[in-house]
Design a protein around this nucleic acid. Structure first.
Length: 266
DNA sequence: ATGTCACCTGGTAGGTGA
């Protein structure tokens, strides 16, 4: 199976690019963030016409998430159960053997701000919910825009970004808290080119200068690790005309081959 | 260079969020 996550920064603007990317890449699952569409405006007909099942959860102007899949998702959940949130940030569903959670985690704006406090509370709630989800879904994928650069090697200029939003110790502790649940950063299972990012600011010619952050992630539960054959960031859509500021992250996974009968020697 | 983009309200711009 091939799964991917992409913050599209307005699906109204990026729909043609998403349809093109789906057609070219043929993933089994794609989760989207920042659709910025109310539910009545979601372009489900366009996706379904191209052969994709959709589940979506949006709001006006900001946020908004979606789960696209070749086979329909079951047991769809919108936002974190039991966590009162007026922002549309999570969509989860079961696709084949996998529990898939797509998330648009809060940006946090700046340390010390109200939005930063919201981000911390949101991440607490996410972790508590994931602990419960993992009890019933051993094969789980959490992917999306985390708005956290986990380590200095995920930052183009760690000195300039030290203590800044996406790079604070508090945010990084939350990221490690997710790993402590038994989740694994799939990107780091493989050797990667240095200075590989998933987001580049629109300003300052950041993409041309490759000044970015790795803040979009795919975390997988332990039982999936042995079946992962690749995880990469697809920079190509960032080269489009009118691109999103984020690039998709892609993972390939297949269930382990059944154990072979032991060949008898002697 | 606070240098871009998307969306809103209420406009032929300014504010917010990222």
């Amino acid at each position: 199976m091939k799964l991917a996550t992409w913050n599209v920064n307005s699906l109204a603007v990026r729909l043609p690019q998403v349809l093109d990317w789906l057609a070219a890449q043929q993933p089994d699952v794609l989760v989207l963030q920042e659709t910025k569409l109310t539910d009545d405006k979601f372009p489900d007909a366009e996706f379904e016409g191209a052969g994709w099942h959709c589940a979506w959860f949006g709001q006006k102007t900001y946020n908004g998430v979606a789960l696209l899949s070749r086979s329909a998702a079951a047991d769809v959940v919108r936002n974190i159960p039991g966590f009162a949130d007026d922002q549309a940030r999570v969509i989860a569903g079961t696709v084949g053997p996998l529990r898939v959670i797509g998330a648009y985690m809060p940006n946090g704006q700046a340390p010390g701000s109200d939005k930063f406090a919201y981000k911390m509370g949101w991440l607490d709630a996410l972790r508590a919910w994931l602990a419960i989800e993992l009890r019933t879904h051993s094969q789980l994928v959490l992917m999306g825009d985390f708005n956290i650069a986990p380590e200095d090697r995920d930052v183009h200029d760690p000195v300039a970004w030290a203590g800044q939003i996406h790079c604070t110790d508090e945010e990084r502790a939350h990221f490690r808290g997710l790993l402590d649940l038994g989740l694994v950063d799939a990107f780091r299972l493989f050797e990667q080119a240095p200075r590989t990012w998933s987001w580049w600011d629109y300003r300052n010619l950041a993409f041309r200068k490759n000044q970015g952050l790795r803040i979009d992630h795919i975390l997988i539960s332990q039982p999936l690790v042995s079946g992962v054959t690749a995880c990469s960031i697809d920079k190509q859509p960032r080269r489009n005309e009118r691109p999103s500021d984020h690039a998709p992250v892609v993972i390939h996974w297949s269930p382990g081959a059944p154990a072979q009968p032991e060949a008898s020697s002697t």
